[in-house]
Write a protein that binds this DNA or RNA. Structure first.
Length: 210
DNA sequence: TTGGCGATTGGCT
DNA sequence: GCCAATCGCCAAT
């Protein structure tokens, strides 16, 4: 339905970087705010990235959140001021990327689940080992693989142009849907997942109707 | 020091 | 749709 967005949307590299003061100081609001924004990765081979079409909020006190049991060496980036990257490994082989979302010392974050590729398609195809554009960054593990995101980027500031940053191309987001988060056990019923309605680059179609 | 557990993915039925 | 692979992290021993 919205396949044309990848053609219509300006390249992520033309975005202006988000200023931290623009980010809502609330995890759930930030998850909604980030829909339609750009995620830009700068690599030696060039720029790759796209439009954020799916996020999940893991707010303060959320039993499903990695910050729930307090700060540890793994999750300390979640406790940085909003707008920093938290990258971790899930299931042994998939990296996941979050945006820290609260004030310094408070642990919470927004999981970036999917982007609609706009820049560096060939770079992402190589990183993912597939030609299928729809599958390049649909899902949190695929997204990180496509953009070459790993623990080395844990803790970096996303509100500053660099290896990985958040941008805005000035376009308003399409209609935003909201539903249950995917793949968790605890607090599974909270409607903390946000996505662009009808966008084919959103993951978890199966979970939509649960 | 160790055992269990995932905010997933991809291959196979 | 079902299920195995995979391994860093951390709570409990």
């Amino acid at each position: 339905m919205h396949e044309g967005n990848s053609v219509i949307a300006p390249p992520a590299a033309c975005s202006r970087v988000l200023d931290r003061t623009e980010l809502p100081v609330d995890t759930v609001q930030l998850a909604r705010f980030l829909i339609g924004k750009m995620l830009v990765r700068e690599l030696a081979e060039g720029v790759a990235g796209g439009r954020i079409v799916e996020t999940e909020a893991y707010p303060i006190g959320d039993a499903a959140g990695h910050a729930y049991r307090g700060i540890t060496p793994r999750n300390q980036a979640l406790f940085l001021e909003r707008g920093h990257a938290y990258v971790y490994v899930a299931y042994g082989s998939s990296f996941m990327m979050n945006v820290s979302s609260e004030t310094p010392g408070v642990g919470a974050g927004v999981l970036i689940r999917s982007i609609e590729p706009t820049d560096g398609i060939s770079i992402m195809q190589r990183n993912r080992g597939t030609e299928q554009v729809r599958d390049l960054a649909r899902g949190p593990g695929r997204l990180c693989a496509a953009l070459g995101i790993d623990r080395r980027l844990d803790g970096i500031d996303l509100c500053q142009v660099g290896p990985l940053w958040l941008g805005s191309d000035g376009q308003s987001a399409d209609e935003i849907g909201q539903g249950k988060r995917i793949g968790i056990i605890r607090a599974a019923d909270s409607p903390l997942r946000f996505y662009v309605r009808g966008n084919c680059f959103v993951s978890g179609a199966r979970a939509l109707n649960r």
